[in-house]
Computed example of a mutant assay.
Amino acid sequence: MRIWGADGTLQVDENSFTMRVVLSTQVTFATAGKGNQDFAVPGCDASNSVAIVIPVGPYNEAASWQFETEMLSGVARVYNHTRTFATSLSTSGTMRLMVIRFA
């Protein structure tokens, strides 16, 4: 991938930017009560990393659950509810957490 700035100069290219998966694990919430789980990822924070969750198994269009992630300093946090929506419903199930660090 190459990215050019507004002035036409090359900002990022395949020689100056790398991404690496630094954590890949399954996250399970067994009960439907609102909660979160923390996973240690030393050297990672919101400025250099991203945490994502993906389903493990067949996708079900009727399923209404999704986990939410947050990157903190050295920690990837996974919620089983939408943390910024007070009346959100909590969910249970299993998803794969991946933390990707970029440089």
Rank of each mutant, 00 (worst) to 15 (best):
R2A: 14
N15E: 13
N80T: 01
V53S: 03
E70M: 10
E61G: 05
V21E: 15
V56T: 13
T84A: 11
T25S: 11
R96P: 00
F39K: 05
V50H: 00
N80H: 05
D13F: 04
Q66A: 10
T25M: 02
G8M: 05
Q37D: 10
F29P: 08
M19V: 14
F39D: 11
Q66E: 11
M1R: 05
L89F: 07
M98H: 06
N80K: 03
M1F: 10
P42A: 15
S64H: 08
A46M: 10
G57D: 06
V41M: 09
P58Q: 12
A103W: 02
Q11H: 06
N60E: 12
I54F: 00
A51C: 04
I3V: 14
L89S: 13
G57H: 09
A63R: 07
I3R: 10
N15F: 10
M1W: 08
S88F: 03
M19Q: 15
V27Y: 01
T31N: 15
I100P: 02
H81Q: 02
A103H: 09
T69M: 03
G43R: 09
N60D: 15
S88V: 01
F17H: 11
T87H: 03
S47D: 14
Y79G: 00
T18H: 11
D13R: 08
F85K: 11
W65Q: 04
V75W: 03
R77K: 05
M98K: 12
A46Y: 13
V22C: 10
P58C: 01
S49G: 10
F67N: 00
V21L: 07
G43L: 07
Y79H: 07
D38S: 13
W65T: 01
D13W: 06
N48E: 09
A63P: 00
G5H: 04
L10M: 13
A103K: 07
L89Y: 05
L89P: 02
A6Y: 06
D13K: 07
A40P: 01
F39M: 06
V41Y: 10
F29E: 06
Q11P: 00
I100H: 04
F29L: 04
A46K: 12
N36Q: 12
C44E: 13
A46C: 05
G8I: 03
S64R: 15
E68N: 12
A40V: 11
N80I: 02
T84C: 06
K34Y: 00
E68H: 14
T94C: 01
V21R: 14
V41T: 13
D13M: 07
F29G: 04
A62G: 07
K34I: 04
T94E: 04
L23M: 12
N60I: 11
D38H: 08
F102H: 13
F29T: 02
L23K: 15
S88M: 05
C44S: 14
F17I: 03
I54T: 15
R101I: 00
D45Q: 08
D38I: 06
N60R: 12
M71G: 06
W65K: 03
M1E: 13
T84G: 04
M98F: 05
L10F: 08
R96V: 04
E70L: 12
R83Q: 04
P58L: 10
S92E: 09
A30G: 14
R77G: 02
F29I: 02
